[in-house]
Simulated assay, not measured.
Amino acid sequence: MALLASTSLFVEAQTEPRPIATTNAMLSLPDAPSASNSIPSIYESSSSSNDTDSSANPGGGGGFDPAAVKRRILATRSDITIYPGQTAPPLSAHDKEIMGFKQSFTLFSLIGWTTSAGYTQLVNGSPNYGTDSGAFGERLGAAALRNTTQNIFGNVVFAPLFHEDPRYYKMGKGNNFFKRVIYSATRAVVTRTDDGRATPNYSLVAGRVFGAALTNAYYPQTNRGFTQTLETFGTSMGGAATGFVVTEFLDEALEIVHLKKPE
């Protein structure tokens, strides 16, 4: 972890921020919802942060607020989701580092680790620790370590390096269901730059590559090597796509089970 932190600080020092879109400009992608990027600096006075809180969330969904994330010990899922019509504050390299580290340890992350460990325990899949109760604990620890390193490499190191926005821009209600599924799933390989242009999701893919490579240090011997690493990378990319689909439809699912009030 100390090595990752040092690397991220080096990247921040070497990364020149790209100019943000002009004030009140609408950032748009050909296949994604648009979001206003009208805040000149997220490090302005506290009154500016309060203005962002009130204007960035017209629908009550909760978008990424850098000041709020810094105040909290852990980031929430809504901190990295931009809802339709919300203002998207520009992110500095330091903002991405804070978000990346805190995003690694959330309730959503814990659910992901447990689900991954539970499924591989059920089918006795990779990593092959066996099927006893101790094996589940080993799988849970491995899933937590793999996902945490992938997230830190992707958001803390590579997102600033490639000048990419690691937030998820939700398409939301009012769009065709299948279009939303395709859009959300493809965010694993398509994202936006800091100035709003469509780009391959280099940071996420690179983070998965490095995270998969590191499993050779702690996975069982049978799950190490080039072929097994490729399999781990493919599984991780599938998990990323699934995570974006869940994020796209999570609010509606919570409304159906009456855990969230309809908007």
Rank of each mutant, 00 (worst) to 15 (best):
L9E: 08
F10R: 12
V11E: 03
V11W: 04
E12A: 11
E12R: 06
T15C: 09
E16S: 14
I20A: 10
M26R: 11
S28M: 07
A32P: 02
E44K: 14
S45R: 04
S45Y: 12
S45H: 12
S45I: 06
S47G: 06
S47T: 13
G59E: 00
G62Q: 04
F64T: 11
F64N: 05
V69L: 06
A75G: 06
Q86T: 10
L91N: 00
E97K: 00
I98C: 09
F105K: 01
F108Q: 05
L110Y: 04
T114Y: 11
Q121V: 10
N124R: 02
D132C: 14
F136K: 01
L140V: 07
A143M: 10
A143P: 15
A144P: 12
A144N: 02
L145M: 06
L145Y: 00
T149W: 14
N155A: 05
L161S: 11
L161N: 08
H163E: 01
H163I: 07
R167T: 14
K170Q: 15
N175K: 12
F177R: 05
V181E: 03
Y183V: 10
S184F: 09
A185H: 14
V189D: 00
D194M: 14
G196V: 09
P200T: 12
S203D: 04
L204G: 02
A206S: 15
R208C: 04
A212Y: 00
A212W: 03
A213Y: 03
L214Y: 03
A217G: 01
R224G: 04
R224L: 05
T227L: 05
Q228T: 07
T232K: 02
F233A: 02
G234Q: 02
T235E: 00
M237I: 10
A241T: 06
A241L: 06
V246M: 02
L250T: 13
D251K: 07
D251E: 15
I256C: 05
I256V: 14
P262C: 05
